[in-house]
């Protein structure tokens, strides 16, 4: 199964940069060397089993945009699963950005009426002053511009974990039957006496599913400071079944995206000495955890607070569960 994902926005807004961070494991510092994208660059990324993400990085210079909206209109906008539109938070020419955006939205409505739309307010690291307020204002403006099309807005930057948060939410929406995965992860967590189990896609380390429902929309200081989570931002994308479990652990609200970012950075360090990151086990003062391969396309992180559980036991549990999850993944995709 293929899902077409459009990545659009003005030239220089940061589309190719985020693609190279998320999908190619390049560090943020190297993105300044990227040239403008000519026309469309297509990428195929195999996600779970048979699920292939077909990413269209659409160069944003005016001449390309004009051609997407005219001669290439049907090619670009048909069979789209997700459109991600990137706005620079301090755009040089917002009125022009918005004109193109509205035209793209019209085309999308005509050719792929059930595509979901995500808007990224990007380069949030450049905002001086209150990022939360600035993002809220942008969110309101963009929602107004979108008319009756339902959109989800995220504030992002390649220099912190906010990018992983946004992209994790985006891929989550295209995984069929994510709820089934969640259910099995919850069972697996119980079997391991784990506080939490998280499933990541192998190359991008984006979060595919977690055992417990994500913490209620964060009002945590840190999330706000990054312009990432703001009350209401996740209302349209929460897919995990929301059973009202009392949260006794009160884990950090940004832990998923921070974990993606940390592991990607460690993977990168390994690759610099021509080694390949494979697995990690930790017994820290705060918790015990094992990060290991689950299936061909996924990694699992098991977090345990019970001090009597040892990493060796967790590793055996992963080995036992592998087969089951491999089957499940294939089922959930062909379903």
């Amino acid at each position: 199964m293929k899902k077409k994902v459009l990545l659009m926005g003005a030239s220089g807004s940061g589309k190719t940069s985020m693609r190279s961070l998320i999908f190619s494991n390049n560090p943020a510092s190297l993105t300044s060397r990227l040239g403008a994208t000519i026309d469309v660059e297509q990428n195929h990324v195999r996600f779970l089993g048979d699920l292939i993400l077909n990413l269209w990085d659409c160069g944003g210079q005016d001449s390309f945009m004009d051609s997407y909206l005219s001669t290439q209109r049907s090619t670009i906008f048909q069979h789209v699963g997700v459109m991600i539109y990137v706005f620079e938070v301090e755009s040089r020419d917002m009125p022009k950005d918005l004109t193109y955006y509205r035209d793209c939205l019209d085309a999308l409505r005509k050719y792929s009426s059930d595509a979901s739309v995500f808007l990224l307010v990007h380069k949030m690291d450049l905002v001086k002053g209150d990022k939360g307020t600035q993002l809220e204002r942008k969110r309101r403006d963009l929602q107004a511009e979108s008319g009756d099309v339902e959109v989800t807005v995220f504030g992002t930057s390649i220099y912190d974990e906010s990018l992983y948060k946004a992209w994790s939410r985006i891929v989550h929406t295209i995984i069929p039957n994510a709820a089934v995965l969640t259910k099995h992860l919850t069972t697996f967590a119980e079997a391991c006496s784990a506080t939490e189990v998280i499933l990541f896609e192998r190359t991008t380390f984006l979060v595919i599913a977690t055992s417990s429902p994500p913490a209620p929309p964060a009002s945590s200081q840190r999330a706000l400071a990054n312009g990432a989570a703001t009350p209401g931002s996740s209302s349209t994308v929460v897919t995990a079944p929301t059973s009202p479990v009392e949260d006794v652990h009160k884990l950090n609200a940004t832990r998923y995206e921070r974990t993606s970012e940390l592991i990607k950075a460690l993977k990168h360090s390994c690759s610099r000495v021509r080694e390949e990151f494979y697995a990690l086990e930790m017994e820290l003062p705060e918790f015990t955890a094992v990060l290991d391969e689950m299936t061909k396309n996924t990694y699992v992180l098991i977090v345990v607070h019970d001090p009597t559980i040892e990493t060796a036991a967790l590793k055996i549990n992963i080995r036992t569960a592998r087969q089951k999850f491999e089957e499940l993944q294939n089922d959930s995709i062909s379903a």
């Binding site: 652990h249 009160k250 940390l262 610099r272 080694e275 930790m282 820290l284 705060e286 977090v303 607070h305």
Partner: peptide, 25 residues
């Protein structure tokens, strides 16, 4: 690589620190 590894481990602790269970550990 060792430097980065230490940095990673330093950063992990607070992320999954539990307000109810970490102290008991």
């Amino acid at each position: 690589l060792c430097c980065d590894y230490v940095k990673t481990l330093n950063a992990f602790g607070p992320l999954y620190k539990s307000s109810s269970s970490s102290a008991a550990r």
